[in-house]
Structure formats: C-alpha cells, structure tokens
Design a protein around this nucleic acid. Structure first.
Lengths: 270, 270
DNA sequence: CGCTGTTTTGCATCTATTGAAAAATATCGG
DNA sequence: CCGATATTTTTCAATAGATGCAAAACAGCG
C-alpha cells in the first residue's frame, strides 16, 4: 500500500540512495577501471566538481581505499580496498571450489583458464589461472566483457530460455569485435541451442582474432547456473580435431566444480 | 609549511572527512572482517542507527559492493567490491612480482607461502600460495595479524632502527598467543638484531602452537622494505637442522622478488 | 618570469542525511 | 495459532554537513 505523500511531488531520493556514498563508490569504480588517474581526470569522468572529488578522495585515502602517489600526483586503488574485496572470496565458496579444478586444467593443458559470472548484460572474470605459455591472455580479474562474444558468456546463458536470453542481451544487433563475431540475436540463440547438446560452447575468434575459448557452465546445489569456466588459447593450439576432447575436459572440470557446490548431475533438466 | 588559519578557532571538520562516505566504508570494513552479518549486528558494531545502516547498506547493495541474502537476512561483501579491490593487484607490481617466486617455493617445498605488508601496527596478508599438504594454515588473504609474533612481521621490521620499531609496535608488553610468544620490546629488538645478520627470521611457535614460520624482507627499487614473504609449516616438518637451508631458500626467493622490483643487492646498507 | 592547468582551501547556501518513532515484518516459545 | 520480542523498513521534520563557487596556492613550461 502506498503511504500518503505530499501530493503532486513524488519523493526526490529513492530509499537507499545516499548520494555521498554513491559518489565515493563511483570514484572507486572509475579508479579501478583505469590503472591510475589524476584528480582532475577523476573529476571529469565522474562529473563531480574538483572540490568534491578532492574531499571524497581524501576520505578514501585516509581509510586506505585509495593511495596517492605524491610524486606523480596520481591516484590508485589502495590496500584496504583489496583487503575488503578479498572477503568476497571466502563467501559462497565458488572460487574456492573452482580453483583446484582450474589449476588441474592448467597443469594438464597448460593454457589459461578463467572463471566468470554474470553481471547485468556483461560477464565479469572473477578468477584466473595462467598457463606457462609465452602468449598470455588479455583479460584480468575484475575485467568485464560482453556476453555474446565470449565463451564464458555463452556458457552462462546456454541453459536459459530464449526469452531470458533476449531480456539479458537485448535484441541486437551486437557490436562486432572481429569478422567472426555473432551480431544478431538469432545467430546467438542458434549457437546456444547447439551448445546445449554438447554441454560446452566455443568462442571461435569472436572477441579477439586468433583466440579460441572453450567454456562450460557451473551449477549450484539447486541446479542454477552461477558461473562458467573457460579455457582460452591461440587458435593454432586449439585445432578443430582437438575440440571434442578439450570440450569434454572443460565440461568435466566445470561439472566437478558444480559437484563441489552440491549439484547432482540429474538436477539439470534436459 | 602550515597554512595561515583563522586564529582561535580551528576547523570543526578536517579536510577530507566526509562523514557519510566514511561510514559507508566502515560498514564495508566491518562486514569484510566477519563472514556475514545481519543489519542490526552491523548497526551495533559500527555504532550507527539502524535507519542509517539500512540506507547505507542499501546504497552499497545497489552498487554491488554488498549482497543481501534474502533468505537469511544476512549481508556479505559483494562482487563489485572484489572487482574494485582486484585493481590493487595490477598496481605496484609487487604481487605480480612475488607470485611466481611464491609458486616456485611451493612447488619445491610443498608448504604454504605468504606475502604480507605493514599496515599500522599490524601485518596484512596480501597473497598466499597453499601447499598440497593436508594440514592447512589458518591465515587468509586480507587477514591481519600482530607484528611481534609473526615471521612476516619480524621480517618487515628487521631492518628498521630501534626507534622506528618502538614507534610502530609500542613499548609492550605484548599479548602472548602461546608460551613462546615474545612479550617484551627488548626481547623483540634482540630477535630482530640477530635476524639481521642472517637476513631471514624465525617465528618459532610464537603465534600458534606447532607452527613455525621462516620469513625474509622484500625491498623495492630504492631499498625500502615494502613487504615480506614467509613459509609456514608444522614444527615437525621444520626441524632445527633444516633451518639454515630453508632460511637461505626463503631469503633467496625474497631477494628474487626484490630484484624484480628493481632492487640491487648492494642497495641495502649493512 | 607570466601563462595555463591542476590541486587545495574558505565560505555561504541549502539539500541531502540523519535519528526518532512508527509501521511492517520476521522469530520464537508456548 | 497467537501473543510477545526482535528486526527491518518507512516516514518525517530538523539541521549538520556536503556542496559548488571562487579564490588561492602550486606546478609546469616556454
């Protein structure tokens, strides 16, 4: 029921919108996306006045959430932010469950393995184990990427209904990153459908030329897809003939994580 | 130099003290120390009114810095906090420089290796590679511990002057954790002095019964100690006769990290 | 030097944040 | 099932305190 309220004028501020805090958090976010920024640049990007930016940063600094490089006059994310953020790891147990399997994969195949979750209409990489190859991947923990052109993204959505997929990724067309990027919703849905049978999915140079990813979804104890795991490697090291074996391996690793989370194979309906 | 200021009346609020933001950050900190907390418990611990706590948490939640478990009514640190905090890793390069050496150590010795930095009068563990032994260590990333009874703590201070050490750890007596904990400043200074010759330092069941740690300092390009690295293991696996060899190995690993950071061995004065 | 851009401080304004209190909602013991 | 307690959420009015402006300090540069 609606509470009586001054007529003609709805509330200005939604509940749970504390502007000062939002601004501070936004500063942190912007700062975390760039390696390092000057105050004026931060003020520009957050559209805050320099004075406000200064005071908020100063507050963040006192608490150790950002650091200030005296010499260069640049701001960086601080130790306390790292410390606080690390608490996320000891939470659901997802990362703890996944790391050992990821490490096994890397030991065995010597390619970089990533773990990602859904965040709005993007994926976020939340853990990574790097292969010892010279060629390293570009992604890093905390980085975001589109859903439609990444292995992890596809794996996250492959068990969703068409309606849900449409709601999440939109109707398209999608921005192409390479010549092979799937740019239409129809094409994307088609790929997901195929992948569903195999229970793993391929990103074939759709995000980055020369890079293939093989990915599979991870389920929690109630069968819901909560994350996905992918192996990324230069196309030359993932020829078509290896796909079935590699796919099966990734799928098996992802299932192993799911099982650690309490999932039973029969939980996922066909 | 001090800026001129209206005489007689000092400012109420220091520059860079934005209360709302401070409160929000404090909530994050408190939340990160406990796995998970209820709103009322958070309100108690932060000494904020429930309403304020509620609104700040709601703001943090909207931004993804905390999550709310609908079922249990408990709050946890969220993905965005993790994401933002992860940016710390790609910063100074300390962790990037240290991880490979830490992994080598673990491969070789199969014991847990930690990396820590100084934060006020405590150490903070900022990275860890676990051995594959059944017995695991208790510490985790982001955890804090006292300086005077940890290997990493001693290593961080072993090159400081007596005055600096006193300033940082205080005059004592220190709280004992085990029968072997060093509880006096004099004892602590003595240990540091001895360690200085060897360039590695021992925590001999001073924090936890049955656990020994061997630690060494890491220097940056200007010779300043910026971190320390330790190997932790059950005392039974670190008998006295192995100490010299293990100590030398840790020292060598720490030096290797220092070198990656641009340190030259002759930079540290005798 | 003076010029340009950035960071920092002072101050008056006014809004966004706050606590109290009440309302809704959950928890629990019987 | 029902009161009794504890917790979470909303409303509301008062005002502390966050804000932007403007000016000052500061740094870089030709």
């Amino acid at each position: 029921m609606e509470a009586k309220r001054r007529p003609g004028r709805s509330r200005k501020t939604e509940v749970g919108e504390v502007r000062t805090l939002e601004r501070g958090l936004h500063l942190l976010e912007v700062l975390s996306e760039a390696e390092t920024l000057s105050l004026s640049e931060l003020a520009r990007r957050t559209e805050l006045s320099p004075s406000t930016t200064y005071r908020l940063l100063e507050t963040l600094r006192r608490r150790g959430f950002v650091d200030w490089d005296e010499g260069k006059g640049l701001w960086k994310v601080g130790l306390r932010a790292y410390q606080v953020g690390s608490a996320f790891l000891t939470r659901g147990g997802l990362i703890e469950a996944a790391m050992p399997e990821m490490e096994k994969l890397v030991d065995e195949l010597n390619e970089t393995v990533n773990l990602a979750v859904l965040d709005g209409n993007e994926v976020i990489y939340i853990a990574q184990v790097e292969g010892r190859q010279l060629i390293r991947m570009f992604t890093r923990i905390g980085a975001r990427a589109p859903i439609y052109c990444t292995g992890v993204g596809k794996a996250l959505l492959m068990e969703h209904s068409e309606a849900e997929v449409r709601r999440i990724v939109g109707a398209g067309p999608f921005k192409p990153y390479t010549a092979k990027t799937i740019t239409t919703l129809e094409g994307f849905l088609e790929t997901l459908k195929e992948a569903r049978q195999r229970r793993y999915v391929l990103d074939d140079e759709e995000r980055e030329d020369g890079v293939r990813c093989i990915a599979a979804p991870i389920h929690d104890n109630r069968g819901k897809v909560v994350a996905s795991m992918s192996l990324s490697a230069p196309t030359t090291r993932v020829p078509d003939e290896r796909l079935p074996a590699l796919g099966a391996r990734i799928r098996q690793a992802a299932d192993a994580v799911s099982i650690r989370l309490g999932w039973s194979p029969h939980l996922t309906p066909g």
